[in-house]
Design a protein around this nucleic acid. Structure first.
Length: 592
RNA sequence: CGGGGAGUAGCGCAGCCUGGUAGCGCAUCUGUUUUGGGAACAGAGGGUCGCAGGUUCAAAUCCUGUCUCCCCGACCA
């Protein structure tokens, strides 16, 4: 009875046989919309913190995403394989990450006391494969991928599938003879990713990003745009430049000179005005004219960082300059006192000589500013940075933000978006191949290190992001390409033979065309069926009830627009198929 | 790891302060009437109150310990 297309996704299911218990109320632990809706539609069940069962409805959507990924990666001449989730510690010691990875790596021992971990990613394993199997430049390039569960012992799992500990990920790894060839592989994956997320029906943006801890040189993140996204991305409104805010570049700002009429700074009594907001309000100046100064512990050293009051510090820049992995904001009184610093009133004037002071170039670009006085309850107005501030070094310490000028085209300005990172393409260079000795012989018979790239897509996170981006107050609005089914066929009178026959006719017509149908043949009243259909959010709803059937009609509703059409039973199938195609659906060959 | 909150029926919650036979709504099952945007009535099943100690004649309730989950922060290929 069940028709199995090549993807393994059945073409229909009867609600009466389908395990789906929808909830009217929201489970209390769900705080983001994708989590709420996945709980309410019985898509996921939590087993432990950050660990979920994918119920039948969710798995169907996951399979759709997987299929799109496979088709596009296969088109890009990648090869699928499957690597073990359990990995020996020895391999991770070789790459140096057994030490470096931290507690996200879930480690354990087997009965013989040998160390293992659950794979959070597979660079080590794939590099081991490559060094064993690839001998010659004639074997390259190679791009291998898998779609597999990963485990990362996140500090704080949250938001359901958005940040779980166990999750489904597609990870691909490219091996090339040199940097130039690696760039070709990188670009091929970049292009494949654009096709994948387009085919998933998602509104997304590829952005330049920070390379983080994995160790590499060049990377793009793919973000699904959604107001609830965890990442801020900046995009030029004039050219193609877009970047994660951590990485977004800023146009250089020339230092200002000393104004001809510049007076000396004036000390002003500002009792208990510690924050920029308080000081600006008290002095009746804009926060943009006040300088704030932060003190960090960087390893054993203490450093200061000054930037304009309305700006956020880009910690990555300071970390990079100081070559430290972590910066900790100093809050303890003892440290402040030791260096003669006055919390709440720290400024670049009269700065202690034993503490390096890094100043943002925007500060030096101002003719006059307001700073704290390094003295309790006092600020200085009329400070001329070019004359009065003696920085250890001037850096671009501030984070870019919306409205800042684009450094690439020089014409546009940044607009800000929220994004959910669903994919990343990454040039690894020889970070792993070097450490693990993955080499090949070139045409001259000389041993060369392979150049690698790695490419991830969070499959389950992509599904969550799709819901974050596509929903309304009533429920999910699935993009047709990754919807668990295409059509919700609602039988409103299961006891009425004519209605049953009409449903069967519509169903058969849709099935013959390759559309996937969820038939609601439950004995529920119409109201709950409508609510459930909206909640589950399949692209098209077909309602067959005795009332309109008496006139020979049925009703078709488009979930996305809410548009309802009453159509004759005879034309219903074509009507539905037309609406599905309008949304970008096309039956895969062989799926009929 | 720091701060906050919560564990009582499948889900959402009350009861705890002031100890005395565990309750409400939704869901589930049966029946009747309903039947096009989450029906009504009647009845039924379902909980060792997270776990372990302790206090007490008596503990969901008080005390101690412990586990789990959630939120904020730090972190995040």
């Amino acid at each position: 009875m069940l028709v199995l297309p090549p993807s393994g996704v059945t073409l229909f299911m009867r609600r009466s046989r389908f395990l789906i218990n929808t909830l009217k109320e929201t489970p209390k632990e769900a705080v983001v919309v994708s989590h709420v809706l996945m709980m309410r539609t019985c898509m996921i069940k939590q087993l432990a913190s950050g660990i979920y069962t994918l119920m039948p409805l969710a798995l169907r959507s996951v399979r759709k995403i997987e299929t799109i990924i496979r088709e596009e990666l296969d088109r890009a001449e990648c090869q699928e394989l499957s690597m073990p989730m359990v990995q020996p510690a020895e391999l991770w010691r070789e790459s140096g990450r057994w030490q470096a990875y931290g507690k996200e790596l879930l480690r354990f021992k087997d009965r013989k006391e040998n160390g293992y971990c659950l794979g959070p990613t597979h660079e080590e394993v794939i590099t081991d494969i490559a060094r064993r199997e690839i001998r010659s430049y004639k074997d390259l390039p190679v791009n291998l991928y898998q779609i597999q569960n990963k485990f990362r012992d996140e500090i704080r799992p949250r938001f359901g599938l958005m940040r779980g500990r166990e999750f489904l990920m597609k990870d691909a790894y490219s091996f090339d003879v040199d940097e130039e060839a690696s760039s070709v592989s990188y670009q091929a994956m970049y292009d494949a990713y654009k096709r994948i997320f387009t085919r998933c029906g998602l509104n997304f943006k590829p952005v330049e990003a920070d390379s983080g801890a994995i160790g590499g040189s060049y990377t793009h993140e793919f973000h699904v745009l959604a107001g609830s996204g965890e990442d801020e991305i900046l995009s030029c409104n004039n050219c193609d430049y877009a970047a994660n805010v951590e990485r977004a570049e800023l146009a250089a700002m020339p230092p200002a000179g000393v104004p001809a009429d510049a007076a000396d700074p004036v000390e002003v009594h500002t009792p208990a005005k510690k924050t920029i907001e308080d000081v600006a309000a008290f002095l009746e100046v804009a926060p943009e004219t006040c300088v704030k100064t932060l003190v960090f512990r960087a390893g054993d050293d203490i450093v200061g960082a000054s930037l304009m009051g309305h700006r956020e510090l880009n910690e990555a820049v300071l970390r990079g300059r100081l070559d430290v992995a972590e910066l900790e904001l100093v809050t303890d009184t003892a440290t402040f006192e030791k260096h003669g610093l006055c919390p709440g009133f720290m400024g670049p004037i009269n700065w202690p000589k034993d503490v390096p002071l890094y100043v943002d170039e925007e500060v030096m670009g101002r003719e006059t500013v307001v700073t704290a006085g390094n003295k309790r309850d006092y600020h200085l107005t009329g400070v001329v940075p070019a004359r009065d501030i003696k920085p250890t070094e001037v850096l671009t310490l501030r984070s870019a933000r919306a409205g800042d000028g684009c450094p690439r085209c020089g014409e546009g300005v940044y607009a800000s978006y929220r994004g959910i990172e669903v994919g990343q393409v990454f040039k690894l260079g020889t970070r792993y191949s070097q450490a693990m000795n993955a080499t090949y012989l070139d045409a001259d018979g000389k041993e060369q290190v392979m150049v690698m790239g790695c490419y991830g897509i969070g499959v389950t996170r992509t599904m969550a992001a799709a819901i974050e981006q596509n929903h309304d107050k009533d429920g999910i609005i699935w993009p047709v390409q990754i919807a668990p089914f295409h059509v919700a066929l609602l039988n409103l009178d299961v006891k009425d033979d004519e209605v049953n026959e009409a449903c069967e006719a519509v169903f058969k017509g849709l099935r013959a065309a390759g559309a996937e149908v969820l038939i609601d043949d439950s004995p529920l009243r119409p109201g709950p069926k409508f609510k459930d259909a909206d909640l589950i959010g399949l692209p098209i709803q077909v309602k067959v009830g005795s009332r309109s059937l008496k006139q020979g009609n049925i009703e078709v509703k488009v979930r996305k627009t809410g548009e309802r059409r009453t159509v004759p039973l005879a034309g219903a199938v074509d009507e539905v198929l037309g609406l599905l195609r309008e949304q970008g659906w096309n039956a895969s060959p062989g799926q009929v």
